[in-house]
């Protein structure tokens, strides 16, 4: 698995250089302000963990970076140049790949077609050039096996796989196509202990290959295992922003569990 990452990582990545920089970034949906004043820097070779409760704005944050929704306030820079993504295609073309929480797969399509959807291999670059189906099947199969996933048949519809297997296909796809930045939206939420371990190892491997990783989760234990930098969001605002050296797991856990609110609650419910 590490070799895939090393092989596909962009050559010019140098650990510590900022890949994505958000400055005062925000997003409003009509009158609702889902996110405001977010400063986030994703450096090459580092894992930035974004934590937060439901509705904290985690998904909105990654939708801005992955190009699903353009931001309405502040600036976003990729490789030092300001961008305003109009579609996920533009983000992908910058080498940013995302594992979405809903996985973004098409259930009735074959596993290999899902793997290469939007980035198909063709035998030529003219319009309507035929697909290189054999190569795509082999690559998809090999990449999945590297993750320890053995599908019965790479031609079966992806809807016939289990939830965990589908998650792994989505991750394998992002790892294969993400050359610079990898965004993982709650990648361990639907997984068991063992598969979560595989995902965390992938995250660490991506970091070691020099990619910038954005890891979104509400599990501080998973975050602390791989994170270099932690941001906690609450109701669309940043409430904590610390480097690994400045924060302990206990602090993260307490903050995630509600911090002072929890203390007040425990006082109220004292028995």
């Amino acid at each position: 698995m590490t070799d895939t990452l090393a092989e596909h990582a962009a050559r010019d990545l140098k650990a510590g250089t900022p890949l994505v920089e958000m400055d005062g970034c925000g997003k409003s949906y009509g009158a609702i302000r889902a996110l405001e004043g977010i400063n986030l820097t994703v450096n090459a070779g580092e894992v930035a963990c974004v934590l937060g409760d439901n509705g904290a704005g985690k998904s909105t944050l990654i939708k801005i970076i992955s190009g699903l929704h353009p931001h309405t306030e502040g600036t976003v820079k990729v490789d030092g140049k300001e961008v305003h993504f109009g579609s996920p295609r533009e983000s992908l073309d910058h080498g940013i790949a995302t594992v979405y929480q809903d996985l973004a797969v098409v259930p009735l399509m074959e596993v290999w077609r899902n793997f290469f959807l939007g980035s198909e291999i063709r035998k030529g670059s003219y319009p309507l050039a035929p697909l290189d189906i054999k190569a795509m099947r082999e690559i998809a199969d090999a990449e999945l096996q590297k993750m320890g996933i053995v599908v019965k048949d790479i031609n079966q519809p992806i809807g016939t796989l289990s939830g965990g297997q589908r998650q792994c296909v989505a991750i394998a796809r992002a790892v294969y196509f993400g050359a610079r930045v990898l965004i993982l939206d709650e990648p361990t939420a639907a997984l068991g202990v063992k598969q979560s371990g595989v995902v965390l190892k992938y995250t660490a491997a991506a970091r070691d290959a020099g990619l910038g990783v954005v890891f979104i989760t509400h599990n501080p234990h998973h975050a602390y295992l791989v994170g270099d930098h932690f941001i906690i969001l609450k109701l669309g605002r940043r409430v904590l922003d610390k480097k690994r050296s400045e924060v302990t797991l206990e602090e993260l856990t307490t903050e995630m569990a509600g911090g002072q609110e929890l203390a007040a609650l425990s006082h109220e419910l004292e028995r």
Binding site: S66, L68, S87, P88, Y100, A104, V106, L117, G118
Partner: peptide, 8 residues
């Protein structure tokens, strides 16, 4: 939605 998210 999925198709758009992966760049279609």
């Amino acid at each position: 939605a999925s198709a758009r998210a992966v760049g279609v």
